[in-house]
Design a protein around this nucleic acid. Structure first.
Lengths: 147, 147
DNA sequence: GTACAATCTGGAGTGACTAGAGGTTCAAGA
DNA sequence: TCTTGAACCTCTAGTCACTCCAGATTGTAC
């Protein structure tokens, strides 16, 4: 058992960073906020990570890439550590987040439309023109707030 | 002249907030970072805003609603105060921002696709199932980083 | 052994707000 | 005119998810 543990490949934080694509500083941050458990240390107090940390961090990164907030990931990790629990909660988290992403897409498309309208009215390059972009931004009728 | 100025309708910060939809605290913030010039004050040191401030803040709000960063808005405001300047810069700012918005939409749609895939594999509600969401997040093949 | 890159901790910054504490002013109503 | 409560003030610090920097130590290749 100890022998098996002794032979496990452990890496310093840079090695974990290389394996997961997560920055060194971000790894330390995740440890600080409790997403990643503190690893064992070398005699010189340097972090040494084994396979389980690699897997945990990969999970975290995948979830971050999908836009889950840190607190949501904390919940997902807890569920991950208790596979016998109902997956209602994981599903609720994912669906809620999916809704947020869809809302955001809708909003951004609306922004895109207006930005494209604004940008196209001023092709640029003409000195001393009255800038249509500035005028569009000053146009209260387009600012989405009733006056 | 002084008489005309005396008769201009001025409002306290709450009035400006009501007229523009921008929060009181956010108005103070914009003054602090220099987007909004400091207004005149009452004898009791309360801010008093006239029409020009209302217009300036409406401009800022419109630009923020479109997602322009504060520094970009600072530039747009400078251009707005100098209408004789070439509008190359305003155009460049708008187009650059439009590109960012388009990039973001593309990324979010990709996220939506994967989230929808993940969420649909676990309809939830079945106790003691192996949660497909957790497994999907743990699946290195899907995390966008080569191992 | 030497040198340099990697690692450590602690503190603070980023961007755009947002909240709270404790004190003052203002305006409406009695 | 007086009272009261909302609006206002400044200052400080928090939010979220990182990110950066300084100064010191460790580790590894040559």
């Amino acid at each position: 058992m100890l022998e098996a543990k002794k032979l496990e490949r452990v890496v310093p934080i840079g090695g974990l960073s290389d394996r997961t694509g997560v920055k060194v500083e971000t790894i330390r941050y995740y440890e600080q906020v409790g997403l990643l458990p503190p690893p064992e240390r070398s005699e010189g107090n340097q972090r040494r990570y084994g396979r389980r940390h690699v897997e945990r961090l990969a999970f975290i990164k995948h979830a971050r890439d999908l836009g889950f907030p840190v607190e949501g990931i904390r919940t997902l990790l807890r569920l991950s550590d208790n596979p016998a629990m109902a997956c209602d909660e994981a599903h609720a988290i994912a669906v809620s987040h999916l809704d947020e992403v869809r809302d955001k897409i809708a909003k951004l498309r609306s922004l895109e439309t207006e930005l494209a309208r604004i940008a196209v009215t001023c092709s640029g390059g003409v000195k001393a023109c009255d800038c249509a972009i500035i005028e569009a931004l000053a146009d209260h009728g387009q600012c989405g707030h009733g006056h």
